[in-house]
Design a protein around this nucleic acid. Structure first.
Lengths: 210, 210
DNA sequence: TATCTAACTTAACAACGTTTACTGACAGGC
DNA sequence: GCCTGTCAGTAAACGTTGTTAAGTTAGATA
């Protein structure tokens, strides 16, 4: 019935369909047949472009990491380190709340497959940026000179991930399920500020170590 | 082949089997047939005691919440509020790292089903205890008098959950997969202390609001 | 002894990820 | 202008999943 490169961007289209469906039905709701139907092919066709479902989702996640990193970069327009840290934290949570299905696939979905070293490196781009911002903050005197930038970057990541993860899961606001998005958003914003406050207090210069 | 209450504790046994298998194979690895085989019955028997897989896992999670709450309670032996907060944070992370499969099922597995109000209340026992400790800390002068205990309890939860979640996922230590448990443990401990430090700095009295 | 019922199983369903075997349509060589 | 190979895609099937429907069997009751 078919022949010759009907669509040279086939792999990209499959990934795009997968990304859309992950967002619509969550990581647990996506099936190969659904992805196939969305691009107008049969399920077996996907296997011509991807080894299996795991690899398809891995590559979908890789692309999502790029979007995510771009969103974080765009948000950090401030001139001081504490300003940029705050902007990054807010942008992180905002992206997660806007893309909960993809966020869960990226950060909570089982253990990692055999992804490449390059992919690992790419996925840590945000962390490296955070660390750089922190080091510039130390140089500028905004943070304590003895601040461990790797530990601090991990602390920030832990905080924003915890907030995003709990907000998405709907477990944080007293009631199960996803509460009113406006409430979730307001509370998440408040919490992100509380986290930023506590970091700044702990890392302010002149207070002595730890 | 069988007849009359062969086992009056059937439901409890099924839950126990499910809990063991969740820990061994993770939330995504457990199947009804596996649970059935473990208790020596056929898969359909489970449906005599539970409506479906979701309800079985819900009740399994309910029991796990009790264990979890007990572990947190046992750990908080200190006399001052900051001490108890620190102990609670460490116990939280330690429990998650010791029971990663169950932890993921409890806090990251899809959205919540239609669990009862009682179950919701029970699942928030740890949060309430944290809030009480914080309020006692305010009364004792260990924390700022204007500390918002609900916000602070959420902040703590967000921190320890983020740490536990990322540590379990194996995404935090540069390499994918679950790294050397000793490394994960040491880094998690260090991070838990960093979190506690930042909270205490931000909530110390006499520094002015936020 | 006959009947009822609780407790459990076997067989089957649709849907899942995945594999195998197939079907066309085009390209190049003769 | 035809043969042949290969590429792109599909249909059918496999084993496994959660779940349901239809038995089956052992003990209690009449």
């Amino acid at each position: 019935m078919a022949a010759r490169p009907a669509n040279p961007r086939m792999a990209a289209d499959i990934i795009e369909a997968a990304a859309t469906l992950v967002e619509e039905f969550g990581p647990e709701g996506i099936t190969m047949r659904m992805v196939a139907e969305r691009i107008g092919y049969s399920a077996t066709t996907i296997y011509l472009y991807f080894k299996n479902k795991e690899q398809l989702l891995d590559e979908t996640v890789n692309r999502a990491y790029d979007w995510f990193a771009e969103a974080l970069e765009r948000a950090q327009t401030g001139t001081t380190a504490p300003e940029r840290i705050r902007q990054g934290a807010h942008a992180y949570v905002a992206w997660g709340l806007a893309n909960p299905g993809m966020y869960r696939l990226m950060f909570e979905w089982g253990y990692l497959g055999d992804i490449s070293e390059d992919a690992i490196f790419a996925r840590r781009a945000g962390w490296r940026r955070t660390r750089n911002v922190l080091e510039r903050g130390v140089e500028d005197g905004a943070y304590r000179p003895d601040l461990d930038s790797a530990l601090a970057a991990d602390t920030i990541w832990v905080g924003v991930h915890g907030l995003t993860s709990l907000a998405i899961s709907g477990r944080m606001f007293g009631n199960p399920g996803v509460a009113d998005p406006a409430v979730v958003n307001a509370r998440s914003h408040q919490l992100a500020d509380a986290l930023a406050d506590s970091w700044e207090s702990a890392w302010r210069p002149g207070l002595g170590a730890s």
